[in-house]
């Protein structure tokens, strides 16, 4: 009788005890591999096998959604197209002007003896999975160490920074989004009259909190915030990349320093392609 009870208990509780031990062990193994800048074999195999399947499923869903969505929207698309053509013409003019300014700035920097950093090579990548876990703001891209991506590589979208790579396996990499509370980026106000510097930390839902500002920092709603090239996440973000724009400025009651809420420029919820700075 006692033997039967023991057997029943073992049948009920042995699987969960083993799963807890193995799950925790896998977690420790994974974390230590990531800390070394590599990836554990389970993760490497899972990503190598499943990432192409996820990518293909996403492409099919996109195609179906796009086909259905575009039906009956021809008139709106034509209007939008005309508006975009006008915007492109305006921006092309602006680009020509900015190119001239950049050439002049580079020439003057050279004359004054400034050290100029080389532009890191850019690698296009496709987003395979967006926020794979509801608890962590990460995304998976289809490029890994075989393409030169490494832990710490900065990831950009056309509108601004997306985040940085925290785990690179041979064929895919995981990017920690700038809006995740674990991500901190050295930041400053782009406006020439201000240049107030602080640290942007993720606050969830595509927003960041710009803190560590001085009490008299000149920060206003609408200000564009760019990376300062200092501190945050080991100082891996080069200077001058757009983070987002200020939506609210408040005072921290504890320190009476200013704190700004920043809306991330690149919308991670709709992102499909990114560029990796290697």
């Amino acid at each position: 009788m006692l033997e039967d009870d023991r057997g029943a208990l073992r049948r009920r509780f042995l699987p969960i005890v083993l799963c807890i031990v193995i799950g925790a062990g896998l977690g420790v193994w994974h974390n230590s591999a990531v800390a070394r800048g590599s990836s554990d074999p389970f993760t490497t195999v899972a990503r190598a096998v499943l990432a192409p399947l996820v990518s293909a499923s996403g492409a099919v869903a996109n195609w179906v959604g796009g086909t259905i969505g575009s039906l009956g929207q021809a008139r709106r698309l034509a209007r939008e197209n005309a508006s975009l053509r006008r915007t492109v013409a305006t921006l092309t003019d602006e680009v020509h002007g900015l190119r001239e300014s950049a050439i002049t700035a580079r020439r003057l920097q050279a004359q004054l003896g400034f050290l100029t950093a080389n532009e890191p090579p850019r690698l296009p990548a496709r987003v395979v999975a967006l926020k794979p876990s509801a608890h962590v703001a990460t995304l998976v891209i289809d490029r890994g160490t075989r393409s030169g991506v490494r832990s710490g590589s900065v990831v950009l979208a056309p509108d601004g920074i997306v985040g940085h790579v925290i785990d690179a396996s041979p064929t895919a990499s995981v990017v920690l989004l700038a809006s995740d509370p674990r991500c901190a980026v050295g930041a400053m106000v782009q406006r020439a009259q201000s240049r107030a510097a602080g640290v942007c930390r993720g606050a969830g839902r595509s927003t960041l909190r710009l803190g560590y500002l001085s009490r008299d920092a000149d920060v206003r709603t609408g200000d564009v915030i760019v990376t300062s090239g200092l501190g945050g996440a080991g100082g891996i973000y080069p200077k001058g990349l757009v983070i987002g724009s200020v939506t609210r400025v408040a005072e921290d009651l504890a320190t009476s320093a200013k704190v700004a809420t920043v809306r991330q420029a690149a919308s991670p919820d709709t992102i499909e392609e990114v560029v990796v700075l290697r």
């Binding site: 799950g23 977690g27 994974h30 974390n31 993760t43 876990s133 990460t138």
Partner: peptide
Amino acid sequence: QGSFASVAFG
């Protein structure tokens, strides 16, 4: 899920 999220695997 942990292999794709990378954070909080365990």
